[in-house]
Amino acid sequence: MSETVSFGYEDVDVSEKTAMVGEVFSKVAAKYDLMNDVMSGGMHRLWKDRFVRRVKPQKGEAILDMAGGTGDIAFRMAPSGAEITVSDINQEMLDVGIERALERGIDPDEGSLVWSRQNAEELKFSSRSFDAYTIVFGIRNVTHIDKALKEAHRVLKYGGRFYCMEFSTTEWPGFKEIYDAYSHKVMPKMGGLVAQDEDSYRYLAESIRRFPPMPEFEAMIRDAGFARTKVEPIFGGAVAIHSGWKV
């Protein structure tokens, strides 16, 4: 029997998921950041600011921002003077980020930002290349999360840090039912109205529910070789910042 993985609430052949996820993000790339504002009421901006404060990028560091195509995290880290490689498996997402960089007067061929199409499960970078690895709202869409975590560990230098922000399961009593109803009924409708794509946002909502709970994902990070792992719940656990160190 062929191996299956989750695609939202569906189980699909493992060979199909990467292309299916790619199609979703190709469709939503142009409106991705606008939809983040609409769906979170702008709160994703505060969450990302908080995330970057935890990463503490420093001048001269080499940082890999994986699944960071539109540049939202990279643009926040760039003022630190760190050398940031923005990577994504989806070229349409990277194209949006490059366009946004040009609008900010940042030449995509020069300066502290480099744009690179990469598969998180099979990075083309040399081992021990980066001081920090970041991934925000992206790892749940990876076909083999364990492979992506091991690759993150491989490309980090000793003493390097791993930071991931991902949606999770809220721990606030009574809020779970409200959040579930919003995710399954409101989010797809908003996707249809704003991005003319209800199905893609239905998948994105479902993918959150299929992602491992915080303790389980922290265990996966440890299994990949990281030490001093930590979980920081935000908004009652609806979002969480996970971290670990390569020692």
Rank of each mutant, 00 (worst) to 15 (best):
D131E: 12
R54C: 07
M77T: 03
D223K: 15
E206M: 06
H242M: 04
P108D: 13
K246D: 07
Y133I: 00
V12M: 06
V155F: 05
G60D: 02
L113S: 09
W245K: 12
F167K: 06
K150E: 13
R210M: 13
M20R: 15
R54V: 14
S87W: 03
V231R: 14
G236F: 01
E10P: 00
K17G: 01
F175Q: 05
P57S: 04
N119T: 12
T229V: 15
A181V: 00
S127W: 07
Y9Q: 09
E232M: 14
I178M: 11
D11I: 09
R128K: 13
C164T: 01
E206S: 05
F125N: 09
E151P: 03
T169P: 00
T170C: 09
D33G: 06
D13N: 13
A195V: 14
F167V: 10
Q196G: 11
I73W: 01
V186K: 04
V86M: 08
K17D: 00
D197W: 02
M220R: 15
G138M: 08
S116Y: 12
N141E: 08
E151D: 09
F125M: 08
E171R: 12
G105Y: 05
K48W: 08
E83H: 13
R117Y: 07
Y158L: 14
E177K: 15
T143Y: 07
M35E: 06
D107M: 11
G138H: 09
D72K: 02
S87C: 06
D131G: 10
A132P: 01
M66C: 06
E171W: 02
G71R: 08
L156T: 08
D146H: 13
L34Y: 05
A132W: 03
G244S: 09
L64I: 08
R202V: 00
S126H: 14
R154L: 13
V21I: 12
K157S: 10
S200C: 11
D88F: 12
S15Q: 14
K48E: 07
E3K: 09
G236V: 04
V96D: 02
G236R: 12
F226N: 07
K59C: 00
E83T: 03
I106Q: 07
I106G: 09
N90K: 04
E23F: 06
S168Q: 07
M190Q: 10
L156V: 13
A152D: 00
E171P: 00
V194F: 15
G236E: 03
K124R: 09
Y32F: 15
E16G: 02
E61Q: 15
V28E: 11
K56S: 05
K17H: 02
M43D: 05
H184R: 13
M165H: 01
E166R: 10
D199H: 05
E3D: 11
A148Q: 02
L94M: 12
M165P: 00
R209L: 12
G42C: 11
V28K: 07
F162D: 00
I241C: 01
I63W: 02
L156P: 11
T229D: 06
G69H: 05
R210Y: 01
K31E: 14
A74S: 15
P212A: 09
D72N: 04
K31C: 00
T70E: 09
P108C: 13
M77C: 12
D199S: 10
